[in-house]
Nucleic acid binder design. Structure first.
Length: 474
DNA sequence: ATGTAC
């Protein structure tokens, strides 16, 4: 090397480390033989101070251009992640895929993260894993709630015996077909549209975007959508009297529904995720965890819209249950419901936090919830034990064993028919991606969360309706 | 999860 000038000397004299420093060091090798070290430093500091005077310089033009560009570039607003992830508890660890753990590790490095937990049905999602619970300080993460805001379960227990149900299965199947609606984009039209007071809520006027969704929300009220959503008749068994629900031990007909906030919630989720990504710049590995400050206008807007979507999802279940209860002429003995894609303000370890449950069932002490299995595996009515390490949560189901594509490739129609026959389950709709074999063993998942919930009753699906195979439904 | 890309 011709010159004895090194990078550290330039940094000491006020050159910022990075692209321009490297450029300066390489360019001085292309000439300046007559310059001594001090003269070189003076020259380079001059370029840095007044780059515009050097933009026509034969050698230093590139350096001057880079300095001007750097000065014009916006300040890097990226929020740094903590080097160390805050510790969190994993339930059913040996059944949880690596991708879900990696995502949770990143979430636990957010500056707003207070506590987290992975439920035994956890698997990889966008941002926060499905089956992930995250408590934050004064921040709400749209992708920590999930795309289907207010996705939830609802159960009605009827005063109808198992034998009465079996003697009239054809009628129950008929009513299930008559009063439910499945498929992406689908809803009710004209006189078939349902009504509910949620449609009168003032929050529908919160923003023009939300106002524009009112018609769609009206039309889709009481519909179920697609994917893993279902409406099913089944038999629920209480092995002992339940005082809280006032249900004597025994078997009853029950209706179990799984669906969310349809197109309304999906559009709200998409809008505020995009907004959060604009307002909250995070490193590449964490972009889908962009959060909104709860005190900001956007944060407050999302909070109201999310709660509206949650109430709308609840209303959809209520409409389905009312229609079917009326159709079969039954009396409802008990009703249980819960969100499993939502965020709540809760106190955890003495601090008010925002608890995000993305595919997780609230399981505070004494809180009832529903954890479905699959179309042939049992679902469970549970009572939370209020486990602090799990942030008062439990799994939201069995969790997937195979991705949708893998299930379609690996499971045959015959296998599907055989397992339905074996469990005496009648199925309307559904593709192979929802086959029972695509899911983990719910019994193993329940075993892994004995510290989180007690089982109150066991639900066995009998007549299940889901959306037809994806692609062509029109 | 959702109509088809704000």
């Amino acid at each position: 090397m011709k010159h004895i000038l090194n990078g550290n000397e330039l940094i000491e004299r006020g050159y910022a480390p990075g692209k321009t420093l490297g450029l300066a060091l390489s360019l001085i090798e292309k000439g300046f033989e007559e310059f001594n070290k001090e003269e070189l430093i003076t020259l380079l500091l001059e370029v840095k101070a007044k780059p515009e005077q050097f933009i026509d310089h034969e050698i230093l033009e590139k350096l001057a251009t880079a300095i001007i560009e750097e000065a014009a570039a916006p300040v890097d607003e990226t929020i740094a992640l903590s080097a160390q992830a805050t510790a969190y508890t994993v339930y059913g660890g040996d059944q949880i895929e690596e991708g879900a753990r990696k995502q949770m590790n990143i979430a636990m490095r957010l500056p707003v993260s207070v506590a987290g937990a992975l439920m035994p049905d956890a698997h990889q999602g966008y941002g926060l894993p499905i089956g992930g619970v995250l408590a934050t300080r004064n921040a709400i993460i749209p992708y920590g709630v999930g795309v289907d805001i207010g996705c939830r379960m609802a159960l009605s227990v009827f005063d109808i015996s198992e034998s009465h149900f079996h003697e009239n299965e054809a009628q129950f199947k008929r009513e299930l077909i008559a009063h439910t609606k499945f498929g992406a984009g689908h809803g009710f039209h004209g006189q078939y549209k349902a009504d509910h007071e949620v449609l009168e809520r003032a929050e529908f006027n919160l923003t023009p975007m939300i106002k524009n969704l009112h018609d769609k929300a009206y039309s889709q009220l009481g519909s179920s959508g697609g994917g893993n959503h279902f409406v099913e008749w089944g038999i629920i068994e209480f092995e002992k009297d339940d005082g809280a629900l006032n249900i004597p031990k025994g078997k009853y007909l029950a209706l179990l529904t799984h669906s969310g906030s349809r197109g309304f919630g999906a559009t709200v989720a998409g809008h505020y995720t995009r907004l959060a990504k604009e307002l909250c710049k995070l490193p590449q590995e964490a972009v889908n965890l962009a959060y909104l400050d709860m005190n900001s206008e956007a944060g407050q807007e999302y909070w109201l819209a999310m709660n509206l979507a949650g109430d709308y999802a609840s209303a959809c279940h209520e409409v389905i249950h009312k229609k079917l209860t009326k159709a079969i002429g039954a009396e409802v003995l008990a009703r249980v419901e819960n969100h499993h894609n939502f965020a709540w303000k809760e106190v955890w370890n003495g601090e008010e936090v925002i608890v995000h449950r993305k595919g997780a069932t609230p399981a505070g002490k004494g809180v009832m919830g529903i954890i479905p299995g699959s179309m042939t595996a049992p679902g469970f009515l549970v009572r939370g034990k209020g486990e602090t390490a799990a942030i008062n949560s439990a799994s939201h189901g069995a969790g997937r064993l195979m991705s949708r594509t893998k299930a379609i490739q690996n499971i045959s129609r015959d296998q599907m028919r055989a397992i339905l026959k074996e469990h005496k389950v009648t199925l309307i709709g559904a593709g192979l991606d929802e086959a029972p074999m695509a899911y983990k063993d719910i019994n193993l998942v329940m075993d892994a969360q004995k510290e989180l919930v007690d089982v109150v009753a066991r639900f066995s699906p009998k007549i299940v309706r889901m959306a037809d195979d994806g692609s062509r439904e029109d």
